[in-house]
Computed example of a mutant assay.
Amino acid sequence: MTLAQRETDVLSTIIESYISTALPVGSRTVANASRLKLSAASMRNTMADLTDKGYLEQPHTSAGRIPTAKAFRLYVDSLLRMRPISREERSSILARLTLQGLEISKMLQQATAMVSSLSHEVALVLAPGGNDVRWRRVDFSLLADRLILAVLVLDGGMVHSRVVQLDEQVTTDDLIHFANYLNSHYTGLSFSEARSRILRELHRTEAHLEKLCARALGLARLAFSGETEEERQLFVEGTLTMLDKAEFTDAARMRELLALLDERTRLLKLLDNTMRSADVSVSIAPDMPEAEDSFAGLSVISAPYGGDVPLGVVSVIGPLRMDYGTVVPVVDCISKSLSTLLKDRFSA
């Protein structure tokens, strides 16, 4: 449904007032803030038309209007004015992430804290899942007789390690040969691809495999083929910011939202879906059929990080009346900063 210019101006004014105050907006407020020089009667008529079209609702008969989810969808898609992050702020963000060193968990934890601090909302950062990240190298160390430490390094600085008990004796030289063989054949594959290939190779008749190959694959199978996708780390910061939001002053609603943030399975599903976008996405409750009723009145702003093949996602969850003009650039900047650091440090 196309709106007239007068209607979009009035709607934009109402939304921005509601974002600022969390209060229903009356015609007098709109008349004072809007660029339109309309009479009180004309303003009331325009607001009534927007209500009939589903963009506004009136919580009480004597109250002003508040924007609906449909209004916020239009606002985000067509009316939003961004407040971009300056070059100096971008440099500062990148520097603060760089200070975390090479350990990706610390970097993502810092990124989550920064998103929450800059957006004043609940921030979530989903760490990479091991199965989809490329194999960089594997190393084996002899801990004791027939006791081996296997360490697999994946793109992005992710490390899988496991202690393996063997049935036969091996030497340090054997382990070096095994690692060299595996690194020459599996580097560059995703963890899941490498694991599948190892299992396929072992299903072939061992007579067709060289002894070194068979032993190396057997050790790799023991070390890694039994692993499933690790429980992906999900960093959450800013839960207490909800206490400052008018929408969550109701104790029951606050408990519902806290329970939602504690349900990893549902959050992971939601965030995984947002990784399909190539850029920043804004999901408003009706756009998220998988989110169910507990997401009513909420928006999720997300951006994937990691380059052409996303490794994870940076997100913010907050009320419909989030300050999108501020939050969208924050999420975009930090996701791109993470992509830059991961590419510079860990890509081949």
Rank of each mutant, 00 (worst) to 15 (best):
V153T: 13
S20W: 00
R146S: 15
R81H: 14
L99W: 07
F72N: 07
V115T: 15
A144E: 10
M82F: 14
M47W: 03
G130Y: 04
F140M: 02
G130I: 14
R87N: 12
N32Q: 13
S141K: 09
T112F: 03
T21G: 04
S34K: 03
A69K: 13
T98I: 00
Y55D: 05
L23E: 10
G101R: 07
S62G: 11
D52A: 11
M82Q: 12
L102P: 05
P84A: 15
Q110K: 14
L38P: 03
E57H: 11
S119H: 08
S117T: 11
D49S: 10
L149I: 06
L142E: 05
S62Q: 11
V153E: 04
L97H: 02
L97A: 14
L99A: 14
S27Q: 07
S34Q: 09
P24Y: 09
L50T: 05
S117M: 08
A144H: 05
L102E: 05
K70M: 06
L56Q: 04
D49Q: 08
S20G: 10
K70A: 14
E89W: 02
L74R: 14
R83S: 14
V151F: 05
P24R: 13
L50P: 02
E57C: 01
A41E: 09
M114Q: 15
P67F: 12
V153F: 14
L99E: 15
S34L: 04
R146H: 08
D77T: 09
P24I: 09
A144D: 14
E121G: 11
G64V: 06
S91L: 11
D132T: 12
H60I: 12
L38D: 15
I19L: 03
I66W: 00
H120Y: 09
E89C: 05
K37S: 13
T51E: 14
H60L: 15
Q109F: 11
S91N: 13
L154N: 01
L108C: 07
M82A: 12
Y18Q: 04
S17G: 05
L154W: 00
S42E: 09
L23I: 08
G130F: 08
P59V: 11
Q100N: 13
N131D: 13
A111T: 07
L152H: 12
V76M: 07
R65M: 09
G130T: 08
Q110C: 08
P59H: 07
Q109I: 10
N131F: 04
N45C: 02
L152V: 09
S86D: 04
A22K: 03
Q58N: 10
T68Y: 03
V125C: 05
L94D: 00
K70Y: 06
T46H: 05
S141Y: 09
R146K: 15
A71E: 01
D49W: 01
S92M: 05
V30G: 04
N131I: 04
V138R: 02
S91R: 15
L147I: 11
S119Q: 06
S105I: 06
V30R: 02
Y18N: 06
R90G: 10
R81P: 00
A144W: 00
D139F: 05
Q110S: 09
L126E: 07
S17D: 03
T112G: 10
S119G: 10
S119D: 09
T51K: 06
R65H: 13
L38S: 12
V153M: 12
L154G: 03
V76L: 06
A41C: 03
L152Q: 11
F72E: 08
